[in-house]
Simulated assay, not measured.
Amino acid sequence: MPIENIPEIYIKDNNEIPDLFAYDFKMTHDVVKSKVNLGMNMFSFLQVGKKQVHFANTSIAVNSKQSLLLKKGNWLWTELLDTEIIYYCKLFFFSEKKLIDFLNKYTNNVKPYQEEVPYFVIENDHYIGAYISSLSSNTFVNHKYSDALLVLKFEEIMLYLLNKYGNQFEYYLHSLISKQVSPFKHIVESNVYSNLKLEEIAFLCNMSLSTFKRHFASAYNEPPGKWLQDKRLQKAKELLEGGELKASEIYLDIGYNNLSNFSVAFKNKFGINPSDILH
């Protein structure tokens, strides 16, 4: 699957990436776990459909009642149509320079803050709904004051969210200019029980699959496929022994695409079928 460089693919003149950029995104088919290299921090104002994003250490799913502020980086995202035939959202990108300008102008000089997650979920309300309606890429094309208008729109949503969420949002904004990168092991171990494939975890580590396998073998003294399978099967055994869940209810959550493959792997490791575990 090719990597999509965003927002570059939306900009006609790739030689010049603007500091602020609004884009109307529409789609007529589902896209599952596309590889995205997000080169700028971005607001995703979802209007119709559902969105899920896998980050290095976690994942988040939202619908049209929520919006997301996403940190730049290598992410996997899934965009799903809802009852409508078109998936529709407004994207608003901003550079680190514009963010720093804003923080210097309006916020306190807080200590560097390490965020737990690379996203901020925004609960939409009437004001945000009206804001989204006003944020159309057509508004800022061939407009004498388009750059100035975009700065105002950027400051408007930032100030509104600072007022709405207070210190929580302010700290998050400061974390966006942090240069800390999640360590390799933290990314791997955060995805032990996800249903991501090896190449998808490698992508979140910003590595090719072959490089990822080398790093993994060096860090864990074991091939990643076997290590992950053992961890996931051990977790499955614990869940089944708890007595409240069946194999058919857990196989997807621990990385198997079908019940049959899970049952075979389980029996190969433990010598019994998942259904034979006594509660």
Rank of each mutant, 00 (worst) to 15 (best):
K35V: 01
P183H: 07
F154E: 01
K33T: 00
L198D: 09
A130C: 05
I17F: 00
N142L: 13
E199Q: 11
E16R: 04
Q66W: 06
Y251M: 00
N109V: 03
L162I: 03
L162A: 06
I277V: 11
L38G: 01
D101N: 12
V141I: 15
A247Q: 02
I17S: 04
S194N: 04
Y145L: 14
Y145K: 09
K246E: 07
N5H: 12
G243N: 10
K12S: 15
P118L: 02
A265N: 10
Q66L: 06
S248A: 08
N108Y: 02
E241Q: 15
T211P: 03
F102D: 11
L233H: 01
E84I: 00
V53M: 12
I132T: 09
K35N: 10
L245A: 02
I157L: 15
A148R: 08
I254S: 03
S137D: 14
D101M: 05
L176C: 05
T28F: 08
Y251W: 02
L91F: 10
V31C: 08
F154A: 02
Y251G: 00
Q229D: 15
V53D: 08
N124S: 08
S275T: 01
L198P: 09
L196R: 07
N57Q: 14
V32G: 00
T78S: 15
D125E: 04
H54I: 00
L204F: 11
L162H: 11
V121R: 11
I132F: 01
S59R: 09
Q234E: 13
I85E: 13
S175I: 00
F212E: 08
L80M: 15
L198S: 09
V188W: 12
T107M: 05
S263T: 07
G39K: 13
E156S: 08
Y193M: 09
D101Q: 09
K72A: 15
L149G: 10
K246I: 00
L91S: 09
A219C: 13
L161M: 13
E123C: 01
F184G: 07
R214F: 12
G271M: 06
L176E: 03
Q180L: 06
S95I: 01
Y256H: 01
Q180N: 11
A236M: 03
G242A: 04
I9N: 13
L176W: 03
A202D: 12
F45W: 03
S263F: 01
E222Q: 14
F140V: 05
Q114K: 13
N37M: 06
K72G: 11
L159W: 05
F154L: 10
N268W: 05
L135K: 01
L259M: 07
V121L: 13
K12C: 06
T107A: 11
D30H: 14
N195V: 00
Y106F: 15
H215G: 09
S263P: 13
S67D: 12
M27Y: 10
Y106C: 11
S134A: 13
E4R: 12
K197P: 01
L70I: 15
L91T: 06
Q47E: 13
F154Y: 12
N37T: 04
L69T: 09
H143I: 03
